[in-house]
Design a protein around this nucleic acid. Structure first.
Lengths: 151, 151
DNA sequence: CCGCTTGTCGCAAACATTGGCAGGATGAAG
DNA sequence: CTTCATCCTGCCAATGTTTGCGACAAGCGG
């Protein structure tokens, strides 16, 4: 069981929201992806179990989950927003501009940067999921091979 | 004149796109805001000059500008995407969760972090506009005053 | 188990965004 | 200046997302 089956119900309840069959299905669907997933995927996955569920319910539930921080929402730049079950420790994503590949990194490197920002600007950064774009190792090398050296 | 009036036409042309009256108006509208602005604002501003312009033209032009990196698109978390004219040097935004205020920072602190990521994960980060959430100085202090010490 | 209160769901309508197409504008060549 | 090929725009339709509302179900007290 990927998600905190025993926890999310409590958090939901503590925030004054009810635990419903639909919400459970939707959260399961997000977990089932075990990584980034889209609204469409969640909808399709939920539909396989319950064909009466409505799109608007998916939208509302996902917004709620994001608000309660049970689920992370990330804009990958390609326009559509991806959702992901929140893991216990913060992590961030590197998305390659060329191949589109994603890789996950811990937040050790970023924490130092956050501290710098805090010292220099008096701003306490609490972002726990950043998406950064760039070039992965393979694509950097691919470019170096294609680009004529010396230009 | 805020935007690089002489540059954007060249960049547009170099990328094989045409310089049209509509695109000029739309880019002007983005510049006029001189900061973050929304699609709706751009539309309203353009409409004041030319009432025949269509919404789809705004969408298409903004997408093009973002692709050419004349304009930055940022998801501030509140759901809607904000656009901003690209400045000459990269910068990033700190958005306060409590008061919603934004502050701009240079990329010195982040560049070191990018280098770390590059060394440790072989990923060359090229993101030049990050939005990070947290608490600004004032809101941190406000919280400390409200929270009963000793709990 | 039953009924009550209130939050949630499914439906449909409103609103936002994107795509196809025909006419019009742009930039280049004659 | 005129013509031409191409790209862009505006309109319309399709799609994606949000909202309002009556019916329904979750959680609570009997």
């Amino acid at each position: 069981m990927t998600h905190q089956s025993l926890h999310w119900e409590k958090e939901m309840w503590a925030a004054g929201h009810r635990v419903t069959r639909q919400r459970a299905l939707i959260l399961d669907a997000v977990c089932a992806a075990d990584g980034h997933t889209s609204i469409g995927e969640v909808y399709a996955r939920v539909r396989r179990v319950d064909t009466t569920i409505d799109r608007s319910t998916i939208y509302r539930a996902l917004h709620l989950f994001v608000e309660l921080e049970l689920v992370l929402a990330a804009d990958t730049g390609s326009g559509d927003i991806l959702y992901e079950i929140r893991k216990l420790q913060p992590h961030h994503h590197l998305v390659c501009r060329d191949c589109g590949g994603e890789q996950e990194i811990g937040d050790a490197a970023l924490r130092m940067m956050f501290d710098d920002v805090s010292r220099q600007h008096g701003f306490r950064v609490e972002t726990d999921h950043l998406v950064m774009f760039g070039l992965c190792h393979e694509c950097v090398r691919a470019r170096e091979h294609h680009v004529v050296p010396g230009t």
